[in-house]
Design a protein around this nucleic acid. Structure first.
Length: 558
RNA sequence: GGUCGGUUGGUCUAAUGGAAGUGACACAAGAUUUUCAUUCUUGUAAUGCGAGUUCGAUUCUCGCACCGACUACCA
């Protein structure tokens, strides 16, 4: 082994780094927080793709922090320039805020809607923290815990092939760690030649050594020491996720790291890194992935295959965000559902969230269940709230419907009020996009003139029923009077006045009052199913109802 | 190949070293309603497999199977 002057090496590699780790510590002092307060963060990549995973992690972190009067901050992990999409951070903040994930600190939007920093532990974009990382990188080199590596992509690929052939573990270690113990002269030669280099961690671990580590969700996990000399700084001087995670979460005083369990395999390296840097470990909350049923087996929700992973899907379909939040809460803490039933109108934040309740396995994301949650929540909303939400949604996603829907807001709200309120409200739709189907017939534009009538009745009978009914009904009638008139029509055609009467003796009548109302229903709504017909007709008004019936009579007569 | 994680009805889950549920979704049947949506009642349905420890294991231990993740100068 060559004897290397690490201090000299550090100077050669980082000649411009003058600041010391101590200065960094002083610049980011411990937070002044009450006892037991948790500090957590969401640290997404700005790829422009905001997904359910962000909400799952975000809600978990948010609850952990705000339930303990702690701090939730947003850090943008833009260390991979290739994946960054302009404007992605802005979209992310905007989207998450709709889901109740509001950050106390970190990347934020200014008054012009542009990204800016809020808080004393910034910058919060990792690409702007290069100088900070380099201070700690230099320190690691000085201590002999990191070294430069000049291997090219081709060389690394070659190692990989050899390892496959030899059935050896993959990675930069052992005889493949070509630059682990090279002389200063060798390193200088490459540097002088202008070769690109990365900074690698000098691992002292061995896969022979196992130990236990506590994860707040997974419990005690078995860990095998890492023996790979992972990259800390890429050739552009930007850190890898691992190094940035250690430095940032230390300096920003994160107490709880919430992230997907795809990170579990790199935990050994992270533990090693924190130790090497002399940092205290945060607590880890590794969340299982969201799964989806694919045929008979489950698989992780995939960005490519599953549109429902993207938050934009829920916006487009018109799922109220609070419903998505409620559903996700039921996945995160199974007792949330019971709590919600007992407290239907309480804000979600009243629920006592517990990390211990989280499932260490991946949960299946069940759209059917989401719809159920959504249906229930929407049924409890006021007509006013529904009106505003549908108006906002349709403005963006169905402008044509929006025009009709908002033309006469009092009329529309009256329709939305049918069966709303009380203990057993109607549950007709789970998403705003279903509203058009539900009540479109109230607008002439969407009223289906070609409505199909119940079978087993000839046109003459239907026409005759419609004529008789149109001649007598009055929108000022009370509901019972209105229905009595319906019964009169039934009787005059030889139909049973009461449904029960008919059921008791079905051969005695051609039909019953329910059939008469079915004729009227189809004539007025164009559909065999509708909300309460009396309410529908009252809201439509006498003229509109008469016009529709008249047109139907003519149509049926051919 | 290696490392790690996971496994209770179709799904989300509860519980426990001592009979696995007046839990939820979905599904089915019935009742209710002038239709639908509701609401109510009822029903179908589960501890992956094999050992070990134990009087007793779904729970603890080990092995296997299956599923998933990671194994990048991505995060």
């Amino acid at each position: 082994m060559t004897n290397i002057d690490y201090t000299q090496l550090a100077e050669i590699l980082f000649p411009n780094v003058k600041a010391t780790p101590e200065e960094m510590e002083a610049r980011f002092p411990a937070r002044d927080l009450p006892e037991g307060a948790c500090v957590s963060r969401l640290a997404p990549s700005p790829t422009g793709f905001v997904h359910l995973g962000n909400v799952v992690q975000g809600l978990t972190s948010e609850r952990i922090c705000h339930q303990t009067n702690g701090v939730l901050f947003l850090r943008i992990e833009d260390t991979d320039a290739k994946r960054e999409v302009p404007g992605a951070s802005e979209i992310l903040i905007e989207m998450l805020s709709h889901y109740g994930i509001i950050f106390d600190e970190g990347a934020a939007l200014n008054e012009e809607g542009k990204i800016c920093d809020k808080g004393n532990y910034g910058p919060y974009k990792q690409s702007q923290r290069a100088g900070i990382y380099h201070v700690f990188a230099k320190k690691l080199v000085q201590e002999g815990k990191a070294y430069p590596c000049f291997c090219t992509e081709d060389e690394l690929e070659q190692f990989r092939k050899e390892q496959e052939d030899e059935k050896a573990n993959f990675g930069y270690y052992g005889k493949w760690a070509k630059w682990r113990d090279r002389s200063i002269e060798d390193i200088k030669k490459e540097l002088d030649a202008g070769k690109e280099w990365v900074l690698r961690f000098r691992s002292t671990g061995s896969i022979e050594n196992k130990f236990k580590f506590d994860d707040l969700v997974k419990g005690t996990v078995d860990v095998t020491e890492n023996d790979i000399d992972h990259v800390l700084l890429k050739s552009d001087g930007i850190p890898t996720y691992h190094f940035a995670h250690a430095v940032d979460d230390h300096l920003m005083h994160t107490t709880h790291v919430v992230r997907g369990d795809e990170w579990l395999p790199s935990l050994p390296f992270h533990i090693q890194l924190f130790k090497a840097l002399g940092f205290k470990m945060p607590k880890y909350v590794h969340i299982g992935p969201l799964m989806k049923m694919d045929g008979t087996s489950k698989r992780k929700l995939s960005k490519r295959k599953d549109p429902e992973l993207a938050l934009s899907y829920y916006k487009q379909e018109g799922y109220p965000t609070e419903c998505v939040v409620d559903y996700i809460m039921t996945i995160l803490n199974s007792n949330y559902e019971d709590w919600r039933r007992a407290n239907p109108d309480a804000p979600m934040t009243d629920f006592k969230f517990s990390v211990k309740k989280m499932n260490p396995a991946g949960s299946l994301f069940d759209i059917a269940k989401l719809c159920d949650v959504s249906k229930n929540m929407i049924s409890r909303m006021s007509a006013e709230t529904v009106y505003n939400s549908v108006a906002e949604w349709s403005k963006e996603f169905d402008p044509e419907f929006n025009t009709e829907f908002t033309k006469d807001s009092e009329f529309t709200k009256a329709v939305l009020s049918i069966g709303r309120g009380g203990n057993k409200p109607r549950k007709d739709f789970a998403v705003w996009s279903e509203v058009k189907d539900y009540m479109g017939f109230m607008f002439d534009k969407y009223y289906n003139v070609e409505g199909t009538y119940p079978e087993n009745f000839d046109n003459d009978t239907i026409v005759s029923a419609l004529e008789k009914f149109a001649a007598t009904f009055d929108t000022s009638d009370e509901q019972n009077v209105w229905f009595d008139k319906m019964k009169d029509v039934a009787e005059s055609l030889g139909f049973a006045r009461e449904t029960k009467e008919y059921k008791a003796n079905p051969n005695a009548f051609p039909g019953h009052v329910g059939d008469i109302s079915a004729f009227v229903r189809v004539a007025v709504t164009g559909k065999q199913n509708s909300p309460d017909l009396y309410a529908v007709m009252s809201i439509l008004g006498k003229d509109s109802v008469n016009n529709r019936i008249k047109a139907q009579i003519e149509r049926l007569r051919g």
